[in-house]
């Protein structure tokens, strides 16, 4: 379901699954609930808001990503519970010199060039987090 997830994100909608058994959210979508493994799930749109839990400034990139360095990869805890990975939309210098953990963020998507081995051959869609306030 990754194409649907990325295309929704380009339209500003964060697609997830809500578990009808335990009530918890799974995002991005998976065949099973990330908490209880149930398949009794329904699609839902999440708030797209969350909190930065940790991040890293990447200076050495893999082949195909060299032109993008330095970039900031972050793990964000969504308000609905799931953790999600993406990039922080921030100057790497600022990320290096300040502690950005616990910052409130909202999610959006950017289109970037694909690379030889990435499953989407035309382009990559990259989740980004914009720091609020």
């Amino acid at each position: 379901m990754f194409m649907e997830f990325f295309n929704s994100l380009l339209e500003g909608k964060l697609l997830g699954m809500k578990c009808k058994d335990c009530g918890s959210y799974t995002c991005p979508p998976k065949h099973t609930c990330n908490s209880c493994s149930s398949r009794n799930l329904e699609k839902t749109i999440l708030s797209g808001k969350g909190t930065v839990k940790t991040y890293t400034i990447t200076y050495v990139a893999p082949m195909g990503y060299e032109k993008e360095v330095p970039y900031v990869v972050a793990l964000v805890e969504l308000d609905e519970g799931p953790w999600i990975i993406g990039r922080l939309d921030v100057d790497p210098k600022i990320a290096e010199e300040n502690d950005l953990t616990d910052k409130r963020v909202s999610i959006f998507a950017k289109e970037m060039p694909s690379e030889m081995f990435y499953p989407m051959k035309e382009k990559r869609i990259v989740p980004y987090f914009r720091i609020e306030g």
Partner: peptide, 24 residues
């Protein structure tokens, strides 16, 4: 290969994320 790779996560990146979270 889909969600972590599109963000450009590398192996040092995985443990860099873990290190900062460990400190926190």
């Amino acid at each position: 290969g889909v969600y972590e790779m599109t963000a450009g996560l590398t192996f040092p990146g995985v443990f860099a994320l873990a290190a900062r979270y460990y400190a926190k």
